[in-house]
Amino acid sequence: MEKPIYLDHAAATPMHPEALQRMLPYMTEQFGNPSSVHSFGRAALAAVTEARESIGAALNVSGRRILFTSGGTESDNLAIFGLAARKEYRGHVITTRTEHHAVLHACERLEQLGTDVTYLPVDATGRLQPEQVRAALRPDTFLITVMLANNETGTLQPIAEIGQIAREAGVPFHVDAVQAFGSQKIDLAKLPVDLLSLSAHKIGGPKGIGALYVGDKIRLQPLLYGGTQERSRRAGTENVPGVVGFGTAAALSAGHLEERRAYLESLRTLMLTELARLLPPDSFAVNGHPSERLPHILNLSFPGHPAETLLMNLDLAGVSAASGSACTSGSLKPSHVLTAMGLPASRVNSAVRFSFAPVTTEEEILRASQIVATFLRRRS
């Protein structure tokens, strides 16, 4: 039996062997609490500090600006609620209709607490125009939150331009970079960004650990209370093994970024070329921006073929991918991202996301393309 093909790296990547090896000692003999003053605690604190500096270096900022969390969702929530609480949930927030639910649901909660939220539309490629942000600004706007790259389509947003508008208005700017980190260069010494969310399991690190970059002028109200960890911004004993794994994965990703990007782009091109060769014209459509996008995400619609049916049959054939639909409370709902892009129902309901990583091989891409084409031809 042939080895299964995993093409859902945008959801979770396998652990990098070096990250795992670096973590293991902190699960066994180096078990100290970083807040303890004895040698065991000092060893744990040193490991946390090293990882903090590694992540800071990957973003070209001081490690002191990196705050560890339990993942991207908590990072998004801390950025949003941490600022909103300081404003007593009064005022105005700007975001987009295509954000991750960690942002959208947080904004919906803000509305329940009395905050006004503007959800900006995007074009057919999923891209926001910076001037839309400028037009939406109000005197009481206290936060703009826009993701760097969409997790479903890979479309990149004009973060530098939006950030400049935010700086001119004196409004803090939060960016969810969970999907982009590791395949997109992020230089926070140059980008006008005040808060930036990250997660380890998208780049070969462990699940359950994330980070939030916090600019030096930003003051957040904590979500968790207890100890003085993370400079009194996030109470709780640090997840030392997770932090170590995250730091290692971040350093590895930053060290081979351009090589990684080129390889991922070649895989994406190969799959598109192969599907075009195997299938009749107009059998599929690419969703997202044609050039302003991540290299490792390929979102395709196969009109006339429901995504759930295609994914089920691909899984039976040994290919793991994801749908443009999200499962909520046991009922499938159309992708809010593709719907916000104004795509017709035939494309929204037949959308499948294939996503790649450096461990993906060309042979896997060729075999997966053949499996997809075989199923579609059989169903036509």
Score class of each variant (00 low, 15 high):
residue 279 L to K: 05
residue 226 G to F: 10
residue 208 G to A: 08
residue 261 R to S: 07
residue 268 R to K: 15
residue 210 G to I: 01
residue 243 V to H: 06
residue 258 E to R: 00
residue 217 K to N: 15
residue 218 I to V: 15
residue 279 L to M: 06
residue 264 L to C: 08
residue 216 D to W: 11
residue 206 P to K: 02
residue 256 H to N: 04
residue 220 L to Y: 08
residue 247 G to P: 09
residue 250 A to Y: 03
residue 216 D to S: 15
residue 258 E to K: 09
residue 286 V to R: 10
residue 247 G to C: 03
residue 285 A to Q: 02
residue 282 D to H: 14
residue 240 V to F: 00
residue 268 R to M: 05
residue 232 S to K: 05
residue 218 I to C: 15
residue 222 P to I: 02
residue 274 E to N: 06
residue 243 V to R: 01
residue 223 L to K: 07
residue 220 L to M: 07
residue 232 S to V: 10
residue 284 F to A: 07
residue 263 Y to H: 09
residue 277 R to Q: 14
residue 219 R to P: 09
residue 225 Y to W: 11
residue 248 T to C: 06
residue 269 T to W: 02
residue 231 R to P: 04
residue 236 G to N: 07
residue 287 N to T: 06
residue 287 N to K: 12
residue 280 P to E: 07
residue 238 E to K: 13
residue 280 P to Y: 02
residue 220 L to P: 10
residue 252 L to Y: 01
residue 221 Q to R: 14
residue 203 I to W: 02
residue 257 L to C: 00
residue 236 G to A: 05
residue 222 P to Q: 13
residue 225 Y to G: 12
residue 257 L to Y: 03
residue 242 G to K: 03
residue 210 G to T: 11
residue 257 L to A: 03
residue 256 H to F: 00
residue 259 E to M: 00
residue 275 L to T: 07
residue 240 V to S: 01
residue 271 M to R: 01
residue 253 S to P: 02
residue 203 I to M: 03
residue 267 L to V: 08
residue 208 G to L: 05
residue 203 I to K: 03
residue 253 S to A: 13
residue 258 E to A: 09
residue 211 A to H: 08
residue 264 L to I: 06
residue 234 R to P: 05
residue 246 F to W: 00
residue 288 G to V: 01
residue 279 L to Q: 03
residue 254 A to W: 02
residue 227 G to P: 12
residue 206 P to V: 10
residue 257 L to E: 03
residue 233 R to S: 05
residue 212 L to V: 15
residue 214 V to M: 11
residue 249 A to H: 04
residue 238 E to R: 12
residue 273 T to Q: 14
residue 223 L to E: 13
residue 211 A to K: 11
residue 282 D to K: 14
residue 270 L to M: 10
residue 261 R to Q: 10
residue 220 L to H: 07
residue 254 A to Q: 07
residue 252 L to R: 00
residue 225 Y to V: 13
residue 282 D to M: 11
residue 211 A to E: 10
residue 252 L to G: 00
residue 235 A to E: 06
residue 225 Y to R: 15
residue 223 L to Q: 14
residue 261 R to Y: 09
residue 266 S to P: 09
residue 274 E to H: 11
residue 220 L to V: 10
residue 257 L to H: 05
residue 243 V to D: 00
